[in-house]
Design a protein around this nucleic acid. Structure first.
Length: 127
DNA sequence: CCGGTGACTCTAT
DNA sequence: TATAGAGCCACCG
């Protein structure tokens, strides 16, 4: 036995298209893409949909890597538990996130989504 | 190989 | 009610 094999060696799978497929990131991206237009979700809800094994923080990390993905990931529909645009600062422009949300008929004031609960989309409940 | 980091969330004081 | 701290797991150097 070669002991001490703690390293799981995730071995990133690579799709024929040449794009690396990371399980966790890809799962998050796919789930976020399924958020209907005009609806929003939270990092914790997405993490819970994946089994809450990772935690809300990892979802945010996946969003950070979602830039340039194809199909694009509507990261603007993902906000924190309080409905605040916590991630707007990571967009191309800090106001881009709000613009996109308002475009979907979602009112945002002071980086706070109005009637967040009303627009909230729970993957566990909807799927 | 190990440590630091982070677009969060919850609980306690 | 507000503020502070700890927990959590995956990626990067």
């Amino acid at each position: 036995m070669k002991g001490s094999k703690r390293n799981n060696t995730p071995l990133k799978k690579v799709l024929p298209s040449g794009q690396p497929e990371n399980d966790f990131f890809n799962q998050v991206w796919e789930l976020v893409r399924q958020i209907p237009k005009g609806r929003v979700s939270s990092y914790g809800a997405i993490a819970a949909a994946l089994g809450a094994k990772s935690g809300a923080r990892m979802v945010g990390w996946a969003m950070n890597s979602s830039h340039g993905q194809n199909p694009p990931v509507p990261a603007h529909r993902v906000v924190n538990r309080m409905g605040q645009l916590s991630g707007k600062n990571h967009f191309h422009s800090p106001t881009r996130m709000q613009e996109l949300l308002e475009k979907e008929k979602i009112r945002v004031i002071n980086d706070q989504i109005i009637d967040f609960e009303k627009h909230f989309w729970d993957p566990l409940k909807e799927l």
